[in-house]
Simulated scan of single mutants.
Amino acid sequence: MEGSPGSPLDGISEDLRRIAALLGAVADDPSAEGARDELESISAELRVLITRHFGARRRAAHGQGARGAILAHLQSKTGQWVEGQELAAISGIQEWARRIRELRVESGYDIEEDGGRYRLVRAEPNADAAGKWGTANDIRRRPGSARDRILQFLIAEVGHVVTRDQLDYVAKIKEGSRRVRELRDEEGWPIESHIDVAFLTPGQYRLVSADEQDRRDPRQRKFPEELRHRVFERDAFTCQSCRRDRAIALTAGDSRYYLEVHHISAMAEQLDALPSEELNDPGNLVTLCHRCHSRETADFQRRRRSERGGQPITGQAETPVEPDD
């Protein structure tokens, strides 16, 4: 329909027929050299034509905008990888990647990412993930620093896996992972990542316990993450003292189980004086759970007190001495 004389639709039919003819020519030989460039040129011309004759894009109704278009497209290809450029074209906006993050964080959709590709694992959102969004949204509004808000979120979700996107949202910055490392290394919060457990992937974190007595040994920060992961993986993520892994610990009701690196020939303040090659030699390191590591440290302190008291040191104090309060 051409529209009345002088209307915005004047000449649209002629333009559409011309574009259709261009498309028809490409359809006759889509494998021809330059076919892609021709299609992109036609696409750009069509977008100009739409804007010229129909005006700027109207604000979409709730759920029918760019985010809704991206979700519908991903749902139509559930379980399949979709290129990011395809989602950009579907959404028609420059901030399409932000809409994917919103679908993950706010709506609880399980969307995987791999080198610019995206895959919707399940067509329906995860109720637990959506619940995390409510918690994150509440904490995001609170005063305080980014690190404070991240800690509040981790405590609210203690024992549960949270993602980098959720932490960035709560923190209002793109350095959520850095703040997590600070909380772990500087304050001793027992926060696990893919370095510590096999079931976590990069960008996932879990606060094991919010109890003060479960804080990490502060000297754990002396061991680089890559080294810790090598030691844990070598020892099958199993404590080499009590021989428990996570599954065994959970079955026994120990939800506070987590791993630490233990130096075989040096303990506590002795680590500060070790040269780097001796400190970070995997042959000198072994995997212990936090409970066993704390016990080893307490035993060492008892031996030191016995030594100062002139008693012989035979692996353990002959008469156990309780640690000082």
Rank of each mutant, 00 (worst) to 15 (best):
D272A: 14
A298W: 02
G203I: 08
N284P: 02
P224L: 08
A268L: 15
C289S: 09
D217A: 13
A266M: 00
D299Y: 04
M267K: 15
Q220R: 08
R179W: 02
G188Q: 05
R215G: 10
E192K: 05
D214N: 15
E212R: 14
D254Q: 01
E269D: 14
C239F: 09
C239Q: 06
A247V: 12
H194L: 01
K174T: 12
A247Y: 00
L250M: 00
D254I: 07
H290C: 12
D281K: 05
R234V: 11
T287R: 09
A266R: 09
R206Q: 12
C242S: 04
F223W: 02
R246M: 07
A247F: 02
A252W: 01
A198I: 09
Q204V: 08
E278W: 04
F237K: 02
E186A: 13
E260T: 08
V170Y: 02
H293F: 01
L227P: 05
Q204A: 02
D196F: 03
S241K: 13
V180Q: 03
G176I: 05
T297Q: 06
R230E: 15
S177M: 07
D214K: 11
G253H: 01
C289Q: 05
V231P: 09
T201I: 12
S294M: 06
L200V: 14
L288I: 01
V208F: 10
